[in-house]
Simulated scan of single mutants.
Amino acid sequence: MVESSPIVCSASWFPPVTGGMATVANELAELFEGNGFRAVRLSYPTSKLSAPNYTLQSLLTVAKSNIVHLHVASKKAALWSLPPAVAAVILHKPFILHYHGGNANDLMNVAGGKMMLSRAAAIVTPSPAVKKQFEEKGYKPELIVNGLFTSKFPYKEKDFTVPQMLSARPLYPHYNTDVLIEATDILRQKYPATRLTIAGDGPESKRLKEKVTSLNLLGNVEFTGPVSPSKINELYANHNILLSAVKYDNRPVSFIEAQSSGAIVIAVNAWDKEAPIKNGITGILTQTAKPKEIADAVDRIISDNSKAARISIEARAESEAHDWGNIFPWWLVLYRKILDSDKRI
């Protein structure tokens, strides 16, 4: 049993890399550092050229750690998590597989995925739907929802007279950002001042910008590129709606951040009965990712300011349950359980 100052190897991308996983990984490391642990950040490479050095770095970092926390949200992250996972197995160090993705099959089908799942001391997901997917394959995951510092995203009463919309997901095909652009094209017919800000970057960037130009939406759609975690709160403060057209998803940090800030989340129902927002109460869910359905959902919000205000207030209350002050204790319990049961330490 570890007596004091156990060392955590936290493996992930970290800021300035953007995205929910990087933010959660960094904030969790900070919280552990403030609660009797020493956190060592093992950053996943952003280039294959770093692979040889990274493999050695993984081995050395895991060797001096008491517990390893692997963050995975995509196939690429799963591949980069493999070296520290293998090092943990070789060196007999317990590791947590923290899966941030929206489809468990993506992890189970990637090289090394099943090995990591079978050897992990704990599998954690923030999504009840993903937890169920793992359970159907015989795994026993833990459910710990995403957290945030609500103080970083203060509530701001919004003006819901014109759609001021935000997309805060990377520009990859499965995020369906083109659907949001087409919905904006529909909305501007009724609301000429409609605005969509696309905060993110990725391989779809060039094609999406060309689409905006072809639809003559340059006055309605803005691409910001990557936005650092320290600046994203400004975007939430200046927009009244967060849009998502993803057909399968986890419980995105961006949803909680938007709700904390007073923006209304409008998203495709990618979760069936396990949706992270209550339709018509803490946000709006559409049944499909069709531009017309998303545009109609936005129109209903803008057309009923009193309902919009109620949803905004309820969403803020919901976000407060996700404050790290409420969520982090669950991580402490899990870490201590793993460390206390690991007879090798």
Rank of each mutant, 00 (worst) to 15 (best):
14 F>P: 01
270 A>T: 07
62 V>K: 00
92 H>W: 03
187 L>S: 07
276 P>A: 00
199 A>C: 06
135 E>S: 15
4 S>Y: 14
70 L>T: 10
210 E>P: 04
288 T>M: 11
36 G>E: 13
317 A>M: 13
295 A>Y: 04
162 V>W: 07
48 K>T: 13
25 A>V: 07
30 E>Q: 15
33 E>T: 06
200 G>K: 04
256 I>D: 07
99 Y>L: 02
173 P>V: 09
114 K>E: 15
220 N>V: 07
265 V>T: 12
109 N>D: 15
289 A>R: 06
68 V>M: 08
275 A>L: 01
341 S>G: 12
52 P>F: 08
209 K>C: 09
92 H>S: 14
58 S>E: 09
272 D>T: 01
87 A>C: 03
25 A>M: 07
102 G>T: 10
156 K>A: 14
19 G>R: 01
324 W>P: 11
121 A>Y: 14
36 G>W: 02
160 F>C: 01
105 N>Q: 15
67 I>S: 00
226 P>Y: 08
225 G>V: 10
42 L>T: 07
229 P>M: 00
314 E>P: 05
12 S>Q: 00
317 A>K: 15
131 K>Y: 09
34 G>P: 08
244 S>R: 10
326 N>R: 08
39 A>L: 04
142 E>H: 14
328 F>S: 04
263 A>D: 12
53 N>F: 15
116 M>N: 01
181 I>V: 15
3 E>S: 10
169 R>I: 07
256 I>C: 02
20 G>P: 10
200 G>C: 10
341 S>D: 15
15 P>F: 05
177 T>Y: 08
48 K>G: 11
342 D>L: 03
138 G>R: 03
315 A>L: 12
116 M>L: 05
109 N>Y: 03
107 L>S: 02
